[in-house]
Design a protein around this nucleic acid. Structure first.
Length: 564
RNA sequence: CGGGGUGUAGCUCAGCCUGGUUAGAGCGCUUGCUUUGGGAGCAAGAAGUCGUAGGUUCGAAUCCUAUCACCCCGACCA
């Protein structure tokens, strides 16, 4: 591609509110422009990088036996009502003029097509995938292309006759994902993740560590344990059970509102304090007991409660139901609440909690004797520095960008949409599904987050829009023009895609700056300096390393560099 | 959805608090000349209903009200 004919609108300045490097560089290098909140136009150079990412993912999906589909973005609303996902908050964008919705993912459509034609265990397993635009009603798009209302996703779905089959399809996807991201040159790690409201029995996320990531993960450098904070666990001692077990006693605790104040006032360690957190779950009140200042994790809470919606109870409701304010709530003799407790409280006694009466607390609470409990669950949020459950070394907590997510879905959608097959015994059974996604924009954005310097993008050759950037330093020199054209033609002739900066009206400095900004892996610089000795210069973008190459060895040398 | 902010030339922004000539800068763009190995120089030029609609005022980019869009923090993120 000749730069003089190309649409590559590079910019020196960009708006101040583009804060993360990938967002800034995608704008500056002319890869994309924002149309409206969360919706981006991909310009030729940006789309070329995305196509490279898509092709890598496509090859890896084909390698595990995936079959590519193209499913419609427009779906009948009824399909989504059937699975109960029409009303998930902030999820679906819809068409005003028809009873159609814009698909945010495609489990429903896949289940529909499977229900038409999958009849026997002999038709299974299947892996179906597509690379397509998705739409979601994001309340607040942000971070450039990392979270948009419209984005391209590789989504795939496995259909199996058995749970063992699902495990196999899932493992195949994990392998395909590892291969894809590795080939894209991205440093990533895999974490255990919450299945959330997708339902299902297991899931993992493919993560890129980044301060701009929206996910938080716990990592163990020693043994490799890695989990999304939504499910991460650590090894903390339980609240103790003591020999003496006196009766519950009410104590006056004037103006004590927080756990810290209570510990100070009663001169007891935090492990003896049972904090009560109050939520509404699907409308009903739930009291959650936590040790001391342990932070309740809402994802864990939701899975403990079996899904649905949960939110903290507001102050008036709380007062009305318990007769007390936030700091004085407790589990003893509390009517009308479901009560659950964090595992650290299992079997403990001698605990102190609110008396459901302002300015009073109860002591000597015994979880076994005094609390009507529904169960113990892991409900606390892991804090950095706590011990790994596997190897006891200190856990690290980091932010991360989610590149991909794989789910063992199970039968939720096949049951809702009646996707069944006859097994070897002739019994009808629901098809067992898996669902797997990769964000294409995120691949590109993460590649830039991990591949840039002060001068611009540093593409890995796997995703670079062009592997080589040819620069004709001075278009007023006939020799340079002639030689640069020859270089461009011979590279192109050898099947190497090159961007050729043949602009006549642009100074050499401008071309060099643009080349570094655009970040192609290798720059071939054709200037009078080198031509004097019959040489071209090759600059490796990543290291800045320069080498002078004899004219006739140029193509072979570039081919060698690209094979590295 | 709660809190905060921004909207002025193609782009990035100043001007607004404290109303008053013909609304500015840098970059980009056009033309000419010069320059040509790290975002060139000189000269001339084109380019803005100051987001939109009302209001206050002799007079509004500037003050007030409404509205739309966008951004940031939070909530949310199957």
């Amino acid at each position: 591609m000749r730069f003089s004919k190309a649409f590559i609108p590079t910019q020196k300045e960009i708006r101040a509110d583009a804060t993360i490097p990938s967002h800034q560089l995608m704008l500056r290098a002319g890869l994309m422009r924002q149309l409206t909140a969360g919706v981006y136009v991909y310009l030729p150079l940006g789309y070329k990088a995305m196509l490279k990412a898509m092709e890598i993912v496509r090859q890896e999906m084909n390698a595990i036996g995936g079959q590519e589909f193209h499913l419609p973005a427009l779906n009948p609303e009824s399909l989504w009502i059937q699975t109960g996902r029409r009303d998930i908050p902030n999820f679906i964008l819809s068409i005003k003029e028809r009873d159609l919705v814009l698909a945010p993912t495609h489990e429903e459509v896949i289940a529909w097509i499977a229900s038409l034609h999958i009849q026997s265990y002999k038709d299974l397993p299947q892996i179906w995938y597509q690379i397509q635009t998705k739409f979601r009603n994001e309340p607040r798009p942000r971070s450039g292309v990392l979270r948009g209302r419209q984005f391209i996703m590789k989504d795939s779905y496995s259909l199996d006759a058995s749970w063992e089959g699902l495990d196999k399809s899932y493992d195949l996807h994990a392998e395909a994902y590892r291969n894809s991201f590795t080939r894209c040159g991205i440093k990533f790690f895999v974490v255990g993740a919450s299945s959330g409201a997708m339902g299902g029995t297991g899931s993992q996320e493919f993560m890129v560590e980044s301060p701009f990531g929206e996910d938080t993960v716990a990592l163990c450098d020693q043994c490799g344990y890695a989990a999304n904070l939504e499910i991460a666990a650590s090894a903390l001692p339980k609240a103790p059970r003591r020999e003496e077990n006196g009766p519950v006693v009410e104590v006056h605790t004037p103006n004590v509102r927080t756990i810290d104040q209570l510990a100070e006032f009663l001169k007891v360690p935090h492990e003896r304090l049972a904090k009560s957190v109050v939520y509404r779950h699907n409308g009903s009140p739930v009291l959650i007991m936590m040790v001391g200042n342990d932070q309740l994790n809402e994802s864990k809470l939701l899975s403990a409660l079996g899904g649905g919606e949960a939110s903290p109870m507001n102050a008036e409701d709380l007062k009305g139901l318990t007769g007390a304010d936030g700091g004085s709530i407790g589990p003893v003799d509390l009517r009308g609440f479901r009560i659950i407790a964090d595992k650290r409280l299992e079997g403990a006694n001698g605990l102190i909690s609110g008396a459901n009466r302002n300015d009073y607390h109860l002591t000597n609470i015994d979880m076994q004797r005094d609390v009507t409990l529904e169960g113990y669950y892991d409900l606390r949020t892991v804090v950095a520095g706590e011990a790994c459950t596997k190897c006891s070394s200190a856990l690290k907590v980091s932010n991360a960008i989610e590149l991909g997510h794989i789910f063992k879905l199970g039968t939720k959608y096949s049951e809702a949409l009646n996707v069944s097959f006859l097994d070897e015994g002739g019994t009808a059974k629901p098809v067992i599904m898996g669902s797997y996604g990769i964000g294409i924009e995120r691949i590109v954005a993460c590649a830039i987050e991990q591949g840039h310097d002060a001068n611009g993008i540093v593409w890995d050759k796997a995703l670079a829009p062009y592997p080589v950037h040819v620069i004709a330093v001075n278009m007023n020199s006939k020799e340079v023009v002639l030689a640069a054209n020859q270089v461009y033609n011979s590279l192109t002739g050898a099947g190497i895609e090159a961007l050729f900066d043949d602009r006549a009206s642009v100074s050499p400095g401008f071309k060099f700056k643009d080349a570094d900004l655009l970040g192609m892996p290798f720059q071939v610089i054709v200037g009078e300096k080198g031509l004097k000795n019959g040489q071209f210069e090759i600059k490796r973008r990543k290291s800045g390393e320069r080498m002078m190459i004899a004219k006739e060895e140029l193509v072979a040398t570039v081919e060698g560099l690209l094979r590295e």
